[in-house]
């Protein structure tokens, strides 16, 4: 196992994989935290903004914002999965191949 460790460690692709995955995961985590807590802070501090009607409609700003947070959670997850399936898995596969 220790040879596996040193081999993987020595591979520059491993450093690349780790850097790319961690930075994407961190960016997206911060994004969902900002989006969600932004929404919660509006709920806690500025209820009237969320209750503002859109134009002459009964629909308020809060409805698209709330549904928007749900969609954002889905889209951000999708971004991570797409990038990971393509880029990260390719890198991982190359690292494993190069060990043989």
């Amino acid at each position: 196992m220790s040879t596996v460790i040193s081999q993987v460690r020595a591979n520059p692709k491993f450093a690349e994989l780790v850097r790319k995955r961690n930075s994407l995961a961190l960016t997206l985590t911060i994004a969902i935290l900002v989006i969600y807590y932004g929404f919660i802070i509006l709920v806690a501090f500025d209820k009237s903004l969320l209750a503002t009607p859109l134009g002459a409609n009964l629909m308020t700003l809060g409805v698209p914002l709330g549904i928007g947070v749900i969609l954002a959670a889905f889209v951000l997850t999708g971004i991570y999965v797409t990038k990971a399936n393509a880029e990260f898995d390719t890198l991982t596969k190359e690292i494993v191949e190069e060990m043989k």
């Binding site: 985590t29 969902i32 969600y36 709330g66 947070v69 749900i70």
Partner: peptide, 13 residues
């Protein structure tokens, strides 16, 4: 509903 959903991106990432 929003609160219950936002845990999932965290799980994924």
């Amino acid at each position: 509903s929003v609160g219950w959903l936002v845990g999932w991106p965290i799980v994924t990432f």
